[in-house]
Each structure stands twice: as structure tokens, then as C-alpha cells.
Amino acid sequence: MDYILAGLKEAFRLLFTLDRGTYTIIFLSLRISGTAVLLASCLGIPLGALVGLHKFPGRGVITTILNTCFALPTVVVGLFIYLFLSHRGPLGMLGLLYTPSAMITAQTILATPIIGALSLVAVKGVDPSITKSAISLGATKVQTTLTVLREARVAILAALIAGFGRVITEIGAAMIVGGNIKGTTRVMSTAIALETGKGKFEIALALGIILLAIAFLINAGLYYLQRVKE
């Protein structure tokens, strides 16, 4: 019990003493995972809309593959990217290993199938009469898709939240391709793993509490946006 209280105390101390190291970690986490979710939605939402709104051969296979990627182990994604970015690997000359870019790449790969699959479900859930009336009003294919996406925006927002949740808590890939370098690639999840490994449970718990608090704030903001739009 005293561990948990000490963790709470430590969390407040870290936040309110404006500890620079802690803020660097929080900022890096948000920057890396935020960029990854942005990229993943640029890939995932169009993919979901494409598969969800069109009938073509192989559609079932793509859907199944997307759903399978929910179970993609983060360490495997990390290892895969490491092998590519290592100086022995095909992309070694880019010097991207142990940089935020490498982490963004890994997290984009992890988030894209989640956002894609959930967007797919979202556009499928839209009343088909909307598609029909858009087409009868003379909308082009792109315009029709945008109309459907607008209708499905609440569900798509949920897809983004799920994708963000997946990457901000992810440790395996971040550790391997980021290297947990202080000030450069140390993010909240890897810092928590490090402090736990050291046996410093209070700091680990404090960082965990901060991570949850940030996730809560983001979700509260998104919920507010949804309400305003409705």
C-alpha cells in the first residue's frame, strides 16, 4: 500500500517541480506517438474506406489480414525494423536507428492496421441510403467517400483513440529501435520499464500515473469535440 501512496506522491512531485527530465520524456512520447498516429491515419482511414465501400476480389483476405495485425507482437515489429535499419541491413546508410524517426516508423506500422480495420467497420456501419443519395445527387466517387467518412466520424475518432492507445503504451519496438536513449528516444513506456527494472517502483508508478492522466486529458478533449459536433 505504501508503494502506491509513494507513487502518487512522486507523480505530483515530478509534475509540479517542473522536473525537466520528466517533461522531456512526456514531450517525446507525445511527439513520437502523435506523429505515428497522424501518419497511420493518413494510411489507415483511406485503406479502411477503400475496403469497406468497394466490393472486389480479395476483400475478405485483406480484412482478415488487417484484423490479424491486431495481434502483431510489438517486439517482432521492432526486431524487423531493427534488421532493416541496422548498419548491416539494407537501409543502414540512412543512420535512422536509435532516432525518433525509427520509433515513428515502428509505431506507424503498429497503428495502421488498427486504424484501418476500425475505419472499415466504421464506414460499413453507415446507412447505405446515404451513399445512394450522394450518388443520385451527382457526387463523384471521392465526394461520396468523403460524405460517408463524415457520417462515420465519431467511430473513426474511436479508431484513432485505439491506435493512439496501442502506440503510446508500447514498449517492445520502442526499446529495440529507439534504444531508450535519455533525452532522445526515452519515452514514457520505456522509462517505466527502465525504472521498474532498476527496482525504483515509486518513479515507475509515478510515470504510469502521468501517462494515464495524459491519456485521460486527450480522451476528454476528443469527447468534448464529439459532443460539439453532434
Binding site: R31, T35, L38, L39, C42, G95, L96, Y98, T99, P100, S101, A102, I104, G179
Partner: peptide, 21 residues
């Protein structure tokens, strides 16, 4: 989209001081 990609890839560049791993 272009802006995002440029941002992502400049993030990783190690300019300025000499780096040691």
C-alpha cells in the same frame, strides 16, 4: 502530407554536434 514526411525525416537527422553511441 509532404510537410508531415519532411518533419518526420528531419526529426531523425543528427546535425550539429558530433554523436557517439
Amino acid at each position: 502530407l509532404g510537410f508531415i514526411f519532411v518533419m518526420v525525416f528531419t526529426l531523425g537527422c543528427r546535425k550539429g554536434v558530433s554523436h557517439l553511441i
